[in-house]
Design a protein around this nucleic acid. Structure first.
Lengths: 256, 256
DNA sequence: AGTTGTGAAGTGTTTCACAGCA
DNA sequence: TGCTGTGAAACACTTCACAACT
């Protein structure tokens, strides 16, 4: 997944597998595109192709949410958009703070995909006093001194860390102390957090290294390997997937 | 999943599990830090803590690479750094192009973690003629027209796409046609590529959505059940036979 | 006829627990 | 004694294949 990490073992509530959760946003994106084109219904096969997964997996995933399809017909696009949004908690408003307004922080602040999915950038925070007051993506940057106030005043529970690695753990501790319980970490360092706090990480250099591993192997196989027969038509957009996440899931980028 | 996976179906050659490959960069980072502090050896327990995994997993991972440790002592830091680097293909030089030099592309270009791990930014490419010639991270941005030349002249096999979603597939096709076989995609869209091309994706909004999912669960659990302010949570109870879904709240639209 | 929903089988990953070696 | 390396067990995830339903 993106990597992604930090298991929350306890918490049985409703047993949606982590791997499924990591794919729901993918389905949601594909469904949103269909919705914008006013497509009323979609089959598992079509939707799976649009999301880059196979249809059996998609149907299994949806089966954890409930029986939202109609046999012989498919899924109602609007209804599914609603159900998945609700399942992901996107029907509510999530104020988010971004700490570390370098290039990456600015890129995140400007990223349109947030607002459209229930996330609202409540504040941009940077340690550089020279940044204070400067507008980025239409929001004035605030100094780190304000961090605790901002979190508390806005009821922020999700924080994004886009600082250099050296500052990340300290920022993390302040966020957590102020009440943040979910953190998306772009700094290339392992954060340690108390129980009950979720961390997901994105590290560009890790993703590139994984690509390099496979790239290297391709080069090695080119010679002295069987099969000239070039592939059995290759199904849909193979590739891609989420890792769940699991850190899997993987995920990727870095600090400014 | 970060956040991302990428299937490589057949290809058994050397059977290092994908999950293990995804963790090697993590170990490498921790080991590099130890190396800089001149720590000579490290136990699986210590290294695992530094990398944020558990020690049994780490030992299992290393066992796929070979027997590089010493019982009763631990692992030689320098030796392991070398072995992992070699396994990941980081002992060679990987020229990389970044396409799409907005905030994110610029953040990537400025990322120091590249050079230190065998990656070299060979070129920055943007479709905006006004960007051409401008220096970003000390490299002059080139126009998209040059894409094919650049790839071929530099023997680039890894490309990073940081364009808007609408341009991504087209850029991808040009990269692949010019010889790129590994792509790191930051655009929020599913890329379709021919067999033999690896894609890993990083989607900032997906990671946040996964956090929101867990965050919502936390809110719902806080007080034995819902009752906590936010979180719809749609408790079970109601429903009826036939529909197994949660379905607790006002559906926007019902399925046909 | 067409498509979902899902048990069951298959595959991959993590964890356990301890034998084997320094 | 201490720590690695690894079978075996447990768990998670994916795929198959078909019954159930529209």
């Amino acid at each position: 997944m993106a990597t992604g990490r930090t298991h929350r073992p306890a918490t049985r509530s409703r047993g949606i597998p982590e791997a499924t959760v990591a794919r729901l946003p993918l389905y949601l994106r594909a469904l949103t595109a269909l919705s914008e084109r006013s497509v009323p219904t979609v089959s598992s096969e079509e939707l799976a192709a649009a999301a880059g997964v196979n249809s059996a997996k998609l149907r299994k995933d949806f089966s954890y949410l409930g029986s939202y399809g109609t046999r012989g017909v498919g899924y109602d696009v609007e209804y599914l958009v609603y159900q998945i949004s609700r399942e992901l908690g996107l029907t509510q408003d999530w104020p988010v703070v971004i700490v570390g307004i370098g290039n990456l922080g600015a890129a995140l602040a400007n990223y349109g995909g947030f607002a459209s999915r229930g996330f609202r950038v409540a504040a941009l925070i940077d340690a550089d006093p020279a940044m204070a007051g400067k507008p980025v993506a239409g929001i004035a940057v605030q100094h780190t001194d304000e961090l605790e106030h901002i979190i508390e005043d806005n009821g922020v529970s999700i924080g994004v860390i886009a600082t250099p690695a050296g500052a990340a753990q300290q920022v993390c501790e302040r966020l957590v102390a102020a009440g943040v319980t979910s953190i998306l970490n772009f700094a290339p360092t392992v954060l340690s957090v108390p129980d009950g706090v979720d961390v997901r990480k994105v590290d560009l250099s890790i993703e590139l290294q994984i690509l390099a591993f496979h790239e290297q192997r391709k080069a090695g196989e080119e010679t002295g390997h069987e099969s000239a027969a070039p592939a059995p038509v290759a199904d849909a957009g193979a590739v891609e997937a989420g890792r769940k996440g699991p850190d899997g899931d993987v995920p990727a980028v870095m600090p400014a």
